[in-house]
Design a protein around this nucleic acid. Structure first.
Lengths: 258, 258
DNA sequence: TAAAAAATGTTATAATAACAACAAAATAAC
DNA sequence: GTTATTTTGTTGTTATTATAACATTTTTTA
């Protein structure tokens, strides 16, 4: 194992044991410069192992990382996570002051919520409890939540009344996620209950932005909610096959590869 | 004094949930200045609940398996908070299997949510982000949230569509909080935007249960939403003056003193 | 082994947080 | 109610951390 990986495993061990640690402390413990610690922590944050704040790193409380004992193994498992993270971060950078955005349910859009500028003045509607919790921390964000039945598996909230609220609003940007994109069978998601809400936000938004990692292309899931041509922008990672790049270009959709 | 303790309990809850948090984030979440957060965190560090680093507080890992769910118990501070906690715990004990309950916004009802049996099979509607987070942890609870605009100060969510959702449902028990109860001027709350929602849940529920600590009796706040006679049950603490006990008996309302 | 590449360290500057001291507001006491 | 006390907020200053750009060291590879 490389010196670098070894050090990152040590970092994870220390941070996990203490719930979090300052960068200064970590640099002293591992006898490297603070700059090196910062660079390591940026990688660990990409992989959702820690959350970095000014001066310190906090161990990600998410249970699924509780028993990591080898970082190299864990990186393989979380590669897709880090792509979702990058896609989310890029999408967040598209948000401009006074935007009225709607954020779809999903882990990719959760990463978007996480990365929204802390001080940007904007309005955001969501319908996912995790996303709501990220949005609540933002200083100048006006928040709406479309209510309804809460689904434990997806943290999504959904109802006819929630859709009414969406229909009564207008958005400058819709950030939408999907579980599959197929050339003939369109854009799909995993659960039928998501469909009416997704259709509603598509109808009420100026710019429709699709967020999904490249592994979703060519896949089909149970619930159809849109065609690829319904979107104005697609954000995905650079592993996207050439044929899909061409198809997206043909449909005159703006494509961002992060 | 109670406000302070209350805020510190909230701080502990947030920091525990996230393993740690930046001071900026905490100040935004609780809508107080960073200076206040720093002063609170200094106290919590004294009590070994958190470790403070530059820019952030990290939850003390030694406390991980302690079940202090109320800071004031560990420091023997003000009464009002522990009363709210007791009232909430008692109210939670009234919930029976297959109940369909609605939980109003407020710190007392937040305590109720905290104390709901982890495995009880029931349905609950709420419209407060903190309460939602407590309910999400319950295994067999079916959860609804009435959506709308999120209010930072109270963590309440509210809208016409949220009220529509409430009107479309029926509840076996409504747990309602208030900021004031006056013999002539009725039951009041602090913000006008709470009123339509409170009226809606009163209309849709079989049993209407009022939760409030005894200091609220005799008080009047800006927004009127009900008369005392609209309630079937009152849960408060045993400091309730005799004249109020008599009044409640006269109105044939079931009174629980905890 | 030398050259190339990668990783780490250093420095100066910019950004952010801490702190102290005082002002304002809220609460308690009379 | 009014005054005293406590709590919270604000401001200016100081201390600390982040970042970028470049230098140095270490590791790879031919």
């Amino acid at each position: 194992m490389s010196k670098k990986t070894d050090r990152r495993n040590q970092l994870i061990d220390i941070i996990r044991a203490k719930n979090g640690a300052s960068i200064k402390e970590l640099a002293n413990l591992l006898d490297v410069s603070e700059m090196t610690i910062r660079r390591d922590l940026a990688v660990l944050e990409e992989d959702n192992i820690v959350n970095n704040v000014y001066g310190a790193a906090i161990y990600n409380p998410d249970k699924k990382y509780d028993s990591i004992d080898n970082y190299e193994i864990s990186t393989a498992q979380t590669k897709q996570d880090s792509e979702k993270n990058k896609i989310g971060a890029f999408a967040a950078s598209l948000i401009e002051p006074r935007d009225i955005i709607v954020i779809d349910t999903g882990t990719t859009t959760e990463n978007l919520a996480k990365h929204i500028d802390d001080t940007i003045e904007a309005t955001a509607l969501c319908y996912n409890a995790n996303i709501l919790n990220y949005l609540r921390a933002k200083e100048n964000l006006t928040i709406f939540i479309a209510g309804g039945r809460y689904h434990t598996k997806t943290q999504m909230v959904e109802s006819a009344e929630g859709i009414s609220l969406i229909n009564s609003m207008r958005f400058t940007k819709a950030f939408i996620s999907a579980a599959g994109v197929h050339q003939n069978l369109g854009v799909t998601c995993a659960y039928a209950y998501e469909v009416p809400t997704k259709k509603a936000i598509l109808k009420s938004s100026v710019e429709k932005i699709l967020l999904l990692d490249s592994s979703k292309f060519g896949k089909v899931k149970t619930a159809y909610f849109a065609d690829l041509s319904d979107f104005d922008v697609i954000i995905t990672d650079d592993s996207l096959p050439t044929e899909w790049r061409e198809e997206i270009e043909r449909l005159q959709i703006k494509l961002y590869l992060v």
